[in-house]
Simulated assay, not measured.
Amino acid sequence: MACFREFGEAVRAARESMGWTRVQASLKINDLCQKRESIVSPDALEKWENGRVLPKIEPVKAMAHVYGKPELIDLRVQCIEFLKRSDRRDCHDSICG
Protein backbone atom coordinates (compact mmCIF):
# COMPACT_ATOMS: atom_id res chain seq x y z
CA MET A 1 0.00 0.00 0.00
CA ALA A 2 1.20 3.47 -0.80
CA CYS A 3 0.66 4.80 2.72
CA PHE A 4 2.62 1.86 4.20
CA ARG A 5 5.46 2.59 1.79
CA GLU A 6 5.44 6.30 2.62
CA PHE A 7 5.48 5.54 6.35
CA GLY A 8 8.30 3.02 5.85
CA GLU A 9 10.40 5.45 3.85
CA ALA A 10 10.01 8.07 6.58
CA VAL A 11 11.05 5.57 9.28
CA ARG A 12 14.08 4.43 7.28
CA ALA A 13 15.16 8.01 6.52
CA ALA A 14 14.83 8.96 10.19
CA ARG A 15 16.92 5.98 11.32
CA GLU A 16 19.57 6.53 8.68
CA SER A 17 19.79 10.23 9.54
CA MET A 18 20.80 9.16 13.05
CA GLY A 19 23.46 6.83 11.60
CA TRP A 20 22.00 3.80 13.40
CA THR A 21 21.66 0.20 12.36
CA ARG A 22 18.29 -1.48 12.84
CA VAL A 23 19.70 -3.23 15.92
CA GLN A 24 20.78 0.06 17.48
CA ALA A 25 17.46 1.71 16.65
CA SER A 26 15.40 -1.19 18.04
CA LEU A 27 17.30 -1.04 21.34
CA LYS A 28 16.66 2.70 21.68
CA ILE A 29 12.99 2.33 20.72
CA ASN A 30 12.50 -0.52 23.19
CA ASP A 31 13.89 1.64 25.98
CA LEU A 32 10.92 3.99 25.47
CA CYS A 33 8.15 1.46 24.86
CA GLN A 34 5.92 1.22 27.92
CA LYS A 35 4.12 -1.99 27.01
CA ARG A 36 5.93 -5.32 26.96
CA GLU A 37 3.93 -6.50 23.92
CA SER A 38 5.44 -3.62 21.95
CA ILE A 39 8.98 -4.99 21.87
CA VAL A 40 10.58 -3.91 18.60
CA SER A 41 12.94 -6.34 16.89
CA PRO A 42 15.28 -5.46 14.04
CA ASP A 43 13.15 -7.75 11.85
CA ALA A 44 9.99 -5.83 12.73
CA LEU A 45 11.77 -2.56 11.99
CA GLU A 46 12.80 -3.95 8.59
CA LYS A 47 9.17 -4.86 7.77
CA TRP A 48 8.00 -1.37 8.73
CA GLU A 49 10.76 0.31 6.72
CA ASN A 50 9.94 -1.81 3.67
CA GLY A 51 6.26 -0.89 3.90
CA ARG A 52 5.08 -4.45 4.43
CA VAL A 53 3.51 -3.85 7.85
CA LEU A 54 2.27 -0.86 9.80
CA PRO A 55 3.31 -0.88 13.48
CA LYS A 56 1.08 -0.40 16.50
CA ILE A 57 0.93 3.09 17.96
CA GLU A 58 3.18 2.48 21.00
CA PRO A 59 6.37 1.81 18.99
CA VAL A 60 5.48 4.65 16.62
CA LYS A 61 5.34 7.06 19.56
CA ALA A 62 8.71 5.74 20.75
CA MET A 63 10.21 6.08 17.24
CA ALA A 64 8.87 9.62 16.94
CA HIS A 65 10.61 10.52 20.19
CA VAL A 66 13.87 8.64 19.53
CA TYR A 67 14.20 10.02 16.00
CA GLY A 68 12.85 13.47 16.86
CA LYS A 69 10.21 13.03 14.14
CA PRO A 70 6.70 13.59 15.56
CA GLU A 71 5.33 13.48 12.02
CA LEU A 72 5.69 9.68 12.13
CA ILE A 73 2.63 9.58 14.38
CA ASP A 74 0.64 11.64 11.86
CA LEU A 75 1.74 9.40 8.99
CA ARG A 76 0.55 6.31 10.84
CA VAL A 77 -2.79 7.94 11.64
CA GLN A 78 -3.19 8.90 7.98
CA CYS A 79 -2.62 5.27 6.94
CA ILE A 80 -5.25 4.04 9.36
CA GLU A 81 -7.70 6.69 8.14
CA PHE A 82 -6.99 5.69 4.54
CA LEU A 83 -7.73 2.07 5.35
CA LYS A 84 -10.98 3.00 7.07
CA ARG A 85 -12.08 5.19 4.16
CA SER A 86 -11.27 2.58 1.59
CA ASP A 87 -12.97 -0.09 3.75
CA ARG A 88 -10.31 -2.59 2.85
CA ARG A 89 -10.92 -5.19 5.50
CA ASP A 90 -8.59 -7.60 3.72
CA CYS A 91 -5.71 -5.29 4.74
CA HIS A 92 -6.58 -5.43 8.44
CA ASP A 93 -4.12 -8.26 9.15
CA SER A 94 -1.30 -6.11 7.77
CA ILE A 95 -1.98 -3.16 10.03
CA CYS A 96 -0.26 -4.37 13.19
CA GLY A 97 2.97 -6.21 13.25
Rank of each mutant, 00 (worst) to 15 (best):
M1T: 10
A2E: 14
A2T: 11
C3P: 02
E6K: 11
F7V: 00
F7D: 02
G8W: 03
G8Y: 04
G8E: 06
E9I: 00
E9W: 03
E9A: 09
A10E: 13
R12F: 05
A13G: 08
A13H: 07
R15C: 02
E16N: 05
E16C: 05
E16F: 02
S17F: 07
S17P: 01
S17I: 05
M18Q: 10
G19Y: 01
G19L: 01
T21E: 06
T21A: 08
R22I: 04
R22C: 08
Q24D: 13
Q24K: 14
A25V: 01
S26M: 04
L27Q: 13
L27T: 09
K28M: 09
K28C: 06
K28L: 10
I29S: 12
I29M: 12
N30G: 07
N30A: 11
N30F: 08
D31E: 15
L32G: 05
C33Y: 04
C33V: 15
Q34V: 14
K35L: 04
K35N: 05
K35S: 07
R36L: 07
S38R: 01
I39M: 06
V40Q: 07
V40N: 07
P42Q: 08
D43N: 14
D43K: 13
A44R: 13
A44M: 15
A44H: 15
L45T: 02
L45C: 06
K47H: 12
K47V: 02
W48N: 13
E49P: 03
N50G: 07
N50S: 08
N50C: 03
R52C: 13
R52Q: 15
V53M: 00
L54I: 01
P55A: 04
P55Y: 03
K56S: 12
K56A: 11
I57D: 03
E58P: 00
E58R: 04
E58F: 02
E58D: 09
V60A: 01
V60S: 03
K61M: 13
K61C: 11
M63G: 04
M63A: 06
A64K: 06
H65Y: 09
V66M: 05
Y67R: 07
Y67T: 06
Y67D: 05
P70G: 10
E71A: 11
E71Y: 11
E71K: 00
I73Q: 04
I73H: 02
I73C: 10
D74C: 05
D74I: 09
L75P: 01
L75C: 02
R76W: 09
R76M: 05
V77G: 09
V77L: 14
Q78W: 07
I80N: 10
I80E: 14
E81D: 08
E81L: 12
E81H: 09
F82S: 06
K84S: 08
R85W: 12
R85C: 09
R85H: 14
S86Q: 12
S86L: 00
D87K: 14
R88D: 05
R89G: 12
R89V: 10
C91V: 01
C91Q: 09
H92Q: 11
H92C: 12
H92G: 10
D93G: 11
I95Y: 15
I95E: 13
C96N: 10
C96R: 13
G97H: 00
G97T: 00
G97F: 00
G97S: 01
G97N: 01
